[in-house]
Nucleic acid binder design. Structure first.
Lengths: 297, 297
DNA sequence: ATGACCCGATAGATTTTCTCTATCAAAACA
DNA sequence: TGTTTTGATAGAGAAAATCTATCGGGTCAT
């Protein structure tokens, strides 16, 4: 019956019987039968179908909620027992927003020092994807904005505040300044993330609030791509200060603080609000609490 | 795998493979195989055996803890989905201490008025049994002392305070008094519950604290038995006032308040601290909250 | 309108898993 | 030392889950 609940979870995230089956490592008829069996055991339809997946019934949504919890607990149990025998080991799946990717190492490095047998999978995702994947148990934890959208049932640990800098060549407009304002930045053509990224929306909002009408000459979902353009000195961008520092500056490239208004978006670790958490996740949250203090700038 | 967890729960309460199997409705080899299968899947021994059951390993205890939770959630899920379709229905298992039996109707009567399709099983148990059965998911809720022994992981709703009265014939010693003291009661031979009952221990403590050396001429685990003796007018007992009132007084039988010290033991509803609770249990807790106010005497 | 395709349900065969009966060996007990 | 109790084991039979193959209803593009 437990595997049937997993079928349901897969169906919730794939919204497609065939793909959900593949994700579970079974064939589509098996998954269909499993769902049908759940429905029979509850005596209620869980999924609306009409020759294709059409979402869940209200009862289905409730079952889904329980299924997430039960499957999560099952995994936590296995992990806990395993680590009682072998110490902390396994794989930790983390999803982070692109602008936070560069700081993930401040968590993973001390974590790995403490627990060398833990392996990591770290994915670059949008903030909304992170919350969805957290909900569906696809990742163990996320690193994203804490103070913007409603977070749902998660525990969160603030890590740092995103402060923005203009990355621009020294000989370009504004390149000689000690600080710039958002209004001034709005005059410069910029390379930014794609609009599905919250960071892009935040920066665009800041530019507009300062009265500007930003020109986004190039957009991408990859910070590496953005930076590789900026470092030529022929493009400009706005990045969190920490990220700019990590990527490194060249002779021609300057990183200029943007003041007025100073930004206020807090970024932190989020993990499913389950009590108790899986040992791996609990250790990550503990690490985040430790790191949070040292990051406060 | 879920049924295997149920096997483990049964084993925890029966401490005997054969009886646990019977409780699960399977044969002993099936249960043995189930437990062995769990152990294989975790890669750890869960049960210490040496030709007979010898308790759980530390890992077994942890798994047991999770199993309780997961099995409980599974049941809650089924119940919730069922009540989404059919309204609140099913069976509510309640365990109550003997001295509280008479007040259970103040909960069940309004509950039944609201939810006529719910059936009740109400068992008379000692306070320690209640906590154990709550832990093992054998009952949905208990009515017991709230302020004496550590309660464990439960949510509790205070219902009323137990005040004691001397039940005695009018023509017996003390029978003509308006109030009596514990010291005086200690001089009278009493019918009380057996010493495994907390009520007995409480009363005995009160008697001794007042300097008395109580004579218990008759003891039983049944309040009916005690009362049937007392109502003859030839025996005396100490009972909570509410219980005495319910059982009714006869011409010869008087119920005399015992003062100095006034007693202070709170009795309330306890239910497993699970969020969310099963719908049936949640409704019972709600009912208890409602009733609590009206009971305050 | 119609043909191609996508999606999920269904049928039947096969494999796997589960559960039972019967029996055994070890420990406890008398 | 015999008897009982308790849990493990073996093997047969039953039940279940899963697979392959196929069907039929919708959708979409031409």
């Amino acid at each position: 019956m437990l595997d049937k609940l997993e079928f349901l979870l897969a169906l919730a995230r794939e919204k497609h019987f065939g793909r959900a089956a593949e994700a579970c490592g079974v064939t589509q008829p098996t998954l269909s039968a499993g769902v049908k069996q759940l429905e029979a055991s509850f005596g209620v339809l869980l999924v609306n179908r009409g020759s294709r997946f059409q979402g869940f019934t209200p009862e289905g949504d409730r079952v889904l909620d329980w299924a997430r919890r039960i499957v999560g607990d099952m995994r936590a149990m296995r992990q806990e027992v395993h680590s009682l025998k072998n110490g902390l080991a396994g794989r930790l799946n983390i999803a982070a927003i692109p602008t936070a990717l560069a700081m993930v190492e401040t968590l993973t490095t001390p974590y790995r020092a403490r627990h060398p047998d833990v392996q990591f999978t770290i994915l670059s995702r949008t903030s909304t994807e992170i919350l969805a994947q957290l909900e569906n148990l696809e990742v163990d934890a996320g690193i994203t904005y804490l103070d913007n959208e409603p977070l749902g049932r998660v525990t969160s640990v603030p890590l740092y505040r995103e402060r923005y800098r203009l990355l621009v060549a020294a000989d370009a407009p504004l390149g000689d300044r000690e600080t710039v304002t958002w209004a001034e930045v709005a005059e410069v053509p910029l390379c930014l993330l794609t609009p599905d990224m919250q960071n892009r929306r935040i920066i665009e909002r800041l530019l507009r609030d300062a009265g500007g009408d930003p020109h986004i000459t190039l957009e991408s979902d990859s910070m590496i791509l953005l930076f590789s353009h900026v470092r030529t000195g022929r493009w400009a961008s706005v990045m969190p200060s920490r990220l700019a520092a990590t990527l490194g500056l060249t002779d021609v490239l300057r990183s200029i603080p943007i003041g007025n208004p100073d930004s206020i978006h807090t970024i932190g670790l989020v993990a499913p609000a389950r009590e108790p958490m899986t040992p791996l996740t609990a250790a990550l949250v503990a690490e985040a609490r430790r790191v949070a203090a040292s990051l406060d700038d």
